[in-house]
Nucleic acid binder design. Structure first.
Lengths: 161, 161
DNA sequence: CCGATATAGTCAGGTTCCTGACCACTGACG
DNA sequence: CGTCAGTGGTCAGGAACCTGACTATATCGG
């Protein structure tokens, strides 16, 4: 049981995008739970890419957005949340009047370390399940999909984010 | 440019869940766009697993939720939307007074066909990019992740959805 | 030095998911 | 044949994304 999953009728395989979303949600939920159990109930999976994108000397939220593949709006909201919860500070940039510089606090650095070890634990589990080699392939294929450029013909619309 | 992606500092690899979510969003967006261009501006990627989960004779929305890996609430909302837009009908089950039976309309069947061909087009592109073999591995690994059971020790909490 | 254009960030509002709490009906059992 | 655990579905509310429109500052070209 539990084996049925999507699509028992028809020969149609589940669309890859759907499958990726399922898997992403699954892992995200697991990470949320692990963070809660580790004593960081106010941190969630969505914050991970942000933490990883912050340069030691600080970054602007627009930089974070670009590196974390988010819009400026989403990044800005997450930054506000994390600042409110004491994981980072935001101060005006000394060199650019428009920009605001984001930096990790001590609590932020601690959270980053804990998060890293949790993620490591999952990676280890997966290595064991499917093999480190397979995991490498998986990452490579995902990278390929993420910055694919398959609009070939069609609607002209260039530009992204 | 555009090549940097997450995490240029530190040795830390992007968490796999994050990567999966990026890729899923990316493909989802592409599918949305393709559907719009194909003349179905009111259909989105999120609807795909639902269409695929509907049995020819009809299914209840709770069945759809289980097969599409969603909560009853999410499935119910999507069903309402698709019914409002004429892609499916909802009628009381003759055999169970609580249940409501969901079926595809003619428009629903047409949309299903179009969607299938769009997804096929992307699958072909990906096969060509990374090889059919690689894609098979990818699907297998994703399936593995989706119904993984890695809570080993910890918090006892069994049950899921 | 000034106007055009680009960039940093915000505000408003929508979509797709989720959890928790609840009601209505079913079906089994004592 | 009446209670009641189980299940189908809804309501309320929150999280993490998005697009589009806007303001304020920066920078570049003449």
């Amino acid at each position: 049981m539990v084996k049925s999953l999507t699509n028992p009728f028809a020969d149609r395989p589940t669309p890859l995008g759907t499958l990726l979303s399922f898997a992403g949600r699954r892992l995200g939920g697991d990470l949320d739970r692990a963070l809660r159990e580790a004593g960081f109930p106010d941190l969630r999976a969505a914050h991970a890419p942000l933490f990883l994108a912050i340069a030691p000397e600080g970054s602007t939220s627009t930089e974070l957005a670009a590196r974390a593949h988010l819009t400026k709006q989403s990044a800005g909201e997450l930054v506000r949340y994390l600042a409110d919860h004491g994981y980072l500070t935001v101060q005006p940039s000394p060199t650019d009047g428009r920009a605001r510089l984001v930096q990790l606090t001590d609590a932020g650095w601690r959270a980053l370390e804990v998060g890293r070890s949790i993620v490591q634990r999952f990676d280890d589990w997966l290595d064991e399940q499917v093999g480190a080699d397979e995991v490498r392939r998986l990452r490579a294929t995902l990278d390929r999909i993420i910055d694919a450029d398959w609009e070939s013909g069609a609607s002209a619309g260039r530009s992204r984010r």
